[in-house]
Design a protein around this nucleic acid. Structure first.
Lengths: 206, 206
DNA sequence: TTGCATACATACAAGAATGAATGTAAATTA
DNA sequence: TAATTTACATTCATTCTTGTATGTATGCAA
């Protein structure tokens, strides 16, 4: 079969992204050739080059599919439910929710694996690192706001600044995600991630 | 020049490791060919293949050169000075010391960069991940012991278990190192790493 | 229904990169 | 000092990958 309708083309594009993600997660970005991706998606390299300029753009497309929903979740879980739930619970909820998404959604989990342990941040990919760092800044800022609320409600020890707490939480969670992803057996971190999060938040409570 | 004495050969071997580390840090492991490494070390691929079976073994050799000193430092900084310094200070000291090594020692810093952002943990490299995780287990265990001492000396809140504290500290530091390494400009984490560590420890104090 | 753009498939050229094979001169050993 | 390693250098064959160029059948618009 050749020429397809627009919807078919969109399906093909998504199939290529899916194939790329799966192979990236299995063999790493650099060892996955566009030909292997094409074959895994049941198309030829022609189709891949039609939809994406090169492997880098395909990588970016894969990343965006988890990055954009993350932004949404930050808004909905951390910020939007402003006054209803207590601030510390909102932070805890956001972190636990993130871990749950990783547990339940294979695509998201694979993408995180690729981003954190199966790609090399050099040359064209170096800019991705900057985007990730910028993204972190945003998250830390959001967490800081919520800690500020917590402080106004006297939920936490007043000697700790929201800035410090937010950064500490971010580093904790960053480390947790790295370990979670790398602990593929699940024995060390995956099974007890939620407990670790609750403990971390508990440490802040008055 | 051709055949060298044993000491010369050892120098050559080290030069190859150094060249590999520098190129790995600049262009990533997979995009660095053995030929480039050889040329950067002023030898040919023949020399590289003489000293190392392949790129993977060269990678392992590079890793060992920072891994073994780390083990030593855990013993000397965390454990050996048992009764002299207070436990929380020992943990804080170990973490700060680690960050200082990264700041001052280019080779160690480059190796960490490679290990954390410029290699892909797949296929032959997947086992390296397991080694890293095992290593983490050890470190967490050591930290836990020291927290136990701290608890016996009533330095920390008794409602927090040493196990929980140790894991939380490890995740915090793991995240910090990842961010430290990736924040090559230094603006976000490198400059304030020591402050972040002191804050983290401060959160535990009674 | 004609014509153009789309969504691919196929074919081609060129450049790495690897591993192994072979060459070689000096160091070491007997 | 002769024989044997050692410590590389050089060469070769093969595979993999990329980018591009070209072919082609179909959807869609006028």
């Amino acid at each position: 079969m050749v020429r397809k309708t627009k919807e078919d083309a969109e399906i093909t594009r998504q199939r290529i992204i899916d194939a790329a993600r799966e192979l990236f997660a299995e063999h790493g970005v650099s060892k996955t050739s566009l030909d292997k991706i094409a074959k895994h998606a049941d198309v030829t390299r022609g189709a891949v080059y039609w939809h994406f300029k090169n492997k880098t753009e395909l990588f970016h497309a894969m990343r965006e599919q988890v990055f954009l929903p993350l932004i949404d979740r930050i808004d909905s879980t951390l910020l939007s439910s402003k006054n209803e739930i207590n601030p510390l619970q909102r932070i805890e909820g956001f972190l636990i929710d993130t871990v749950r998404v990783l547990s339940n959604d294979t695509a998201t989990r694979q993408t995180y694996e690729v981003l954190m342990a199966k790609c090399e941040y050099v040359d064209e990919f170096a800019e991705v690192l900057q985007q990730i760092l910028n993204n972190c800044d945003g998250i830390v800022g959001n967490i800081e706001q919520v800690y500020q609320e917590a402080q106004q409600q006297s939920l936490i020890n007043p000697s700790h600044s929201p800035t410090e707490l937010a950064m500490d939480t971010h580093l904790f969670f960053s480390g947790l995600l790295h370990m979670w992803v790398k602990d593929s057996e699940g024995s060390r971190f995956r099974n007890q991630a939620e407990t670790l999060i609750r403990t971390h938040i508990k440490l802040r409570k008055k």
